[in-house]
Amino acid sequence: MTRPSTPERTRPAHAPAAAPYGERSRVAYLFLSPWIAGAALLTVGPMLASLYLSFTDYDLFTSPEFTGLENYRRLFTEDPHFLAAVWATVRYVVLSVPVQLVAALAVAVLLNRASRMQGFYRSAFYAPSLLGASVAVALVWRALFSAGGAADRVLSLVGIRTGGWVTDPDLALLVLVLLGIWQFGAPMVIFLAGLKQIPPELYDAAAVDGAGRWRRFLSITLPMLSPVIFFNLVLDTIRAFQVFNAAFIVSSGTGGPGDSTLFYTLYLWQKGFVDFRMGYASAMAWLLLAGIALVTLLIFRSARSWVHYGGEER
């Protein structure tokens, strides 16, 4: 008895041929053209223009006059406020970024546990990040820490009278640091996503071996979460170096008291749009880019010793 033969698949007699590579490339570039034009006109072009202006004396009203490295020389040798701005920015980054990451990780670990109100708590903790560095938030923050503000009144109940944090050179920077720490919602969400990727079998095996919660956190959570910590560290460090709105509002654009809140971006704005020394401000902008690139490179180099990826042999 013979098996019935299966019908062969018929192919269309005139199947359309694939378009030539050159034609496909032209179509791809046609769809990419809006992005390419935007990048050229709004990013690459202004960057090259600012690089040229950094070597000129330019006041926005007259033609730029080429001066070579004069702007850079003045920054390092004749401008005491430049070093003050660098120091205030570095202190802000060193104080705010680590504490913000620790707070975000701690809250993420707590929110990772199943509970009825989990969605509400996640939304509540993420809400400050939705507001961002808005002018309204900075104004409220300034009112809270001004003389007679809520923070001053609460501390006066226990006998501590500051007279206002924003007018105290020793406390004004702390106001901005607290504002930066308060907005930890974005890294918290990223930490939550990373915690969901850790296999629960690892915790079960460690619990069977007698490891407590703290030991499981140190031996499992932190190593498995190290790539996420690295990612948040890079993003938050870059973001902290570029803080402007909060410092501008809290200090009324002066960077005071005593240059304690004179962040680098605020001083750059003063030079470019108050003193109209746009060439000088362009030189400052390129130094900021170089500084952020150097710090980012150092973070990447250090990651070799503490960032662990799944399946990696060591």
Rank of each mutant, 00 (worst) to 15 (best):
A88L: 10
L95S: 03
L83Y: 13
A85Q: 06
S54F: 03
V102N: 10
V107N: 03
L69M: 13
Y58S: 09
T67G: 00
Q100V: 09
V86K: 05
V107E: 05
A108N: 08
G68A: 02
D57R: 15
S54L: 01
E70Y: 08
P98Q: 04
L53Y: 09
Y58L: 05
A84W: 06
R73G: 10
D59E: 08
L101Y: 07
L69E: 07
T77R: 06
E70I: 00
W87Q: 03
A84T: 14
G68D: 02
P80Y: 02
A88T: 15
F82I: 12
D57V: 11
Y58R: 06
P80L: 12
V90N: 00
A85K: 06
L69S: 13
V94N: 02
S54D: 03
R73S: 12
L60F: 11
T67Y: 04
L75A: 03
P64A: 00
A88R: 08
D59C: 11
D57F: 06
T89G: 12
A104Y: 02
L95P: 00
F82H: 10
F55I: 00
D57L: 15
L75Y: 03
R73T: 10
L95N: 00
R91Y: 01
A108G: 04
E70F: 08
V102S: 07
A88S: 15
V97L: 05
S96W: 04
L53K: 03
F82K: 13
D59T: 08
